[in-house]
Design a protein around this nucleic acid. Sequence first.
DNA 1: GCCGTTTTCGGCCCGACTGTTTTCAGTCG
Length: 587
Amino acid sequence: MVKGLKSAFTMKNQEIADIFSTIADILEIQNENQFKVNAYRKAARALTDLNVDIEQLQQQDQLSSIPGVGKAIAKKIDQYLNTGKIQKYEELISEFPKGLLELLKIQNLGPKTIALAAKKLNVQNLDDLLVVIENGSLSKLPGMGEKKVQKIKAGVDYYLSSRGNILISQALTVAEEIVRHLAETSNPEDISIAGSIRRMKETVHDIDILVASKQPKSCIKNFVDFKGVREVIAAGETKASIRRTDGSQVDLRVVSPENFAAALLYFTGSKAHNVKLRSLAKNKSLKINEYGVFKNDRKIATDSEEDIYRKLGLSWIAPELREDRGEVELAEENRLPVLINREDILGDLHVHSNYSDGHHSIESMAESAAAMGYQYIAICDHSKSANYANGLSAEKLEQQIKEIDSLNQRFDNFKILKGAEVDILPDGALDFPDNLLQQLDIIVASIHSAFNQNPTERILTAMNNSYVDIIGHPTGRLINQRQGYDVDLAKVVEKAQQKGIALELNAHPLRLDLNDVDAKMAKDSGIKIAINTDAHATKDLNFIEFGIGVARRAWLEKNDVLNCQTCQKILNNKRKKQDTQNEMLEK
DNA sequence: GCCGTTTTCGGCCCGACTGTTTTCAGTCG
C-alpha cells in the first residue's frame, strides 16, 4: 500500500466525520453550548482532512494526537471502530426529527429559529416549514415577523432551485463582469474578487467582491442598480448583497483604501483559515479583523497581505491554500510549497480536433496553443468505440498521423504530438490495437461507458498496457450533474506509481477531475499529474486556469506536473519506460 | 468538548446587517 494514501479503508474516517457533524447540528438546534458544538465540528473536519487510516491510529493508541480530538471524542471514535456505533449519536438521532437537520442548509434560517418553529409549531421537516410559512403562523412567533419570514422563504426557494452551487467558471464570469462595471462607474481605488472564487474552489455559494473607495454610497448604489439584479437582499453603508436573475448571490463590501489589504485577507477566507489566524494573533497578544492587525487597540502597519501575515509571524499564504489544512503551520516555519503557476505549464496533453467531436482543426488548435506560449500540444481524439463522439477508425487515425507530421514541418519551436484518448472497454482492453498505439506519442486512456462495470479493475487492466501515459478524468464525475464511477483511487495511484503512468487533472470546469483532495494524495504518493484541458475548441484551452487553480489547492508544485516538462523529456521518459517493460517481459 | 510556556479551569474570532425591538438576538461570512 502506498504510504499516506486515502483509500477505501479511510471511508471509516469520513463515516465518523459525518456522525460528528450531525451531532454538532443536533446539539446546535438543541441550544447546547456553542463551543461544544464547535468542538464536534472541528473534530469532523480534522477527520475529513486526515490522510491516514483512523483504525491505524486507534491501534497505535494515537487518536488524541489528531488536533481537536480529546478524551471524549477519542472515546467515541474508539466505540465506533469497535462496535460500529456511537452511543451518544444513537441516543440523539433516535429522538430527534431527522428532517430538521436539512433546514440548517437554508439561508437566513439558523438553529435558533428552527428550534423555535419545532417547539411552538411542531415543525419537523421542510414540508412542515413551508406550511407554517404559507399559513402565517411562523411570522406570529415571538421575535419573528413578516420580513424575516419572507427572507426565510427566499432561502427555501434558493435551496430548492439550485442547492446553492455554482461552477467556478460561471461564478468567475459574473464576478469579472461586476468588477468591470464597478471599475468603470465607481472610480474605486482598488477592487478585487474575494471569497471562494479567489481560493479557486470548484463550486462557490456566492460571489464576493471587495472595493476600496472613499465613496462607499455610490459604489453600493452602482452595484445594486446594475443589470441582472433580481432582488436586493441587503444594502447598508458599506455592504450589500444581491440575488441575480441567474440565481447567483453577490456580496459587495466597500472599505476605505487603508483597510483594503486586511479586508481582502478577511473576505478571501476560508472561515477556518480566518479563525486560525485570529487565534494565532490572540496568542501573540494581537487582534486581527477586517480593518487590520492591532496591538493594544493601535493599528500596526498592514499595507499588504504579505505584511499582515508577517506581523503574525507567517510567510504569505496563497489564497488557494487557505483552508486550514496545515498551511498556517508550514507558513510559521517558512516551508510552504512553491505552487505551480500558469507560466510553468509548457503544453496541453489532451485536446480534441474536428477529426472526432472537437470544433476546430488540428492546425487551429496548434496555433492557439502556440499563441498561449506553449511548446507542444497533444491531439487526443476519441477512439473508434466512442460513437457518440465520432470516434476515429484506424484509417482515420492514420490519416491524422500524416496530417500532424506534415503540420509539424511548418512550426518552429512548437510541436504537435500525435495522441489518442482511447476508451477503456468494459473488459479493460484498450479500444485501439497496440500496432496503432505504438505509432503515437501520448495515450490518454479513459472510461466513457459502462460506468458501473468494475471501473477499478478495468482501469488497472488498462494500465498494464505499456503504451498508456495518462489515465483521463480518473473518477468520471461531472460537477452538480453526475457522481463519479466507484473507483478505488488508492489502487489506481499505487499502480500508476509502479507503471510510471500519470493521472489527469482534467481542467474542464465541469469535471475538475481529480479534485483537490485526490490530487494532493496522488502528489503525496509521488506520481505525476497531467493538467489537461480536454479542449474541444480553441477557447477551451483557457480552461487551464481552472486546472491550475485546483492544482494549487492540491499543493502541487512544478515537479509534480507532467506537462511542466519539455516534450523531449516526456518522450524520452516514455521510451525509457517502454524499454524497461520490454526487458522485464523478455526476462 | 478541547486546550495549555498566562496550563487542569476558564477561555474558546469578530463585526455588519436586519428585523424586531426599544437594546438586542439571529444570521452570515
